[in-house]
Design a protein around this nucleic acid. Structure first.
Lengths: 138, 138
DNA sequence: GCTTGACTTAGACAAAGTCCATTGTAGGAT
DNA sequence: ATCCTACAATGGACTTTGTCTAAGTCAAGC
């Protein structure tokens, strides 16, 4: 965790109480939080922090490649701190629960040149959908 | 196209001018429109149509399986009329252009049981990201 | 041509996110 | 240790996307 703060400082990130709190929130839990949830947890540690700052900071962390933005549903973006090991997501269609998963194979290699239409393809995002045990059982 | 209208009528869909116009807009162009774009095109054909009706109708078409909802970016949902041939999407990270693509293999089979966490996995959505020729060239 | 219940409408509302002018402050310079 | 200043934070207005509701309208069956 201080790894993250160290890395950021090394890249010339100006360290402020707000940024530290946001980074701590993301590192503290291995879940996929919405911006609002990050804000709520940040407020618990630093009551004066504003929504705009949380959005700004999240945006910077994404630009720096420290955090992934995940848009699994139409609602809010979610932020995934597990940016250094490539992985994909499994989402419950009913309750929205998200798990990180590691499929076999390399989906990037599965897109033939004839299907690339001249694009420079750099990334692939796989989202599995289904029902989690709780929602399927009920 | 009248195929679509026929199918819908066969399923007990009450046919109205508004619904016809929305269905025509989706069938008319092989692009991925946002709800607002659908509304704009629908207004061109039927000026009195309201936003709520477009949203309702799109939602019904999705429920009926005639149209796919695609959420490639954080902005608006897009609607893909090409629901009867399974496919995935290639998105330009800069301009947002979308192409339908057909990767090799079956990503659903690439998720081992040990990575399913008890979920009933029913669907998979693959989004390739990169730069389109225009954006990469510039 | 009626009737009826499903459909449509306009506009208020809500949620998620962005923008901007102002105020505050981290960290280097002195 | 103190000062400076560029960068960061604030908060509130604003935008975008989508949902809801009460009242009016109309497609389809009789």
């Amino acid at each position: 965790m201080s790894d993250l703060l160290e890395r950021l400082r090394g890249r010339g990130w100006r360290m402020t109480a707000q940024r530290r709190v946001v980074a701590e929130v993301l590192n503290g839990e291995h879940v996929h939080l919405t911006a609002d949830e990050v804000h709520a947890r940040a407020v618990a540690k630093l009551p004066e922090i504003s929504r705009a700052t949380v959005y700004n900071t999240l945006g910077e962390l994404v630009s720096l490649g420290e955090v992934l933005e995940v848009t699994t549903d139409k609602r809010a973006k979610r932020y995934d701190p597990n940016a250094h090991r490539p992985h994909h997501h499994l989402v419950c269609a009913r309750c929205g629960a998200i798990r990180d998963v590691h499929p076999l194979g390399n989906p990037l290699a599965d897109l033939p040149d004839t299907e690339r239409f001249g694009f420079t393809v750099s990334d692939v995002e796989v989202t599995y959908r289904g029902l989690c045990p709780d929602c399927a059982g009920a």
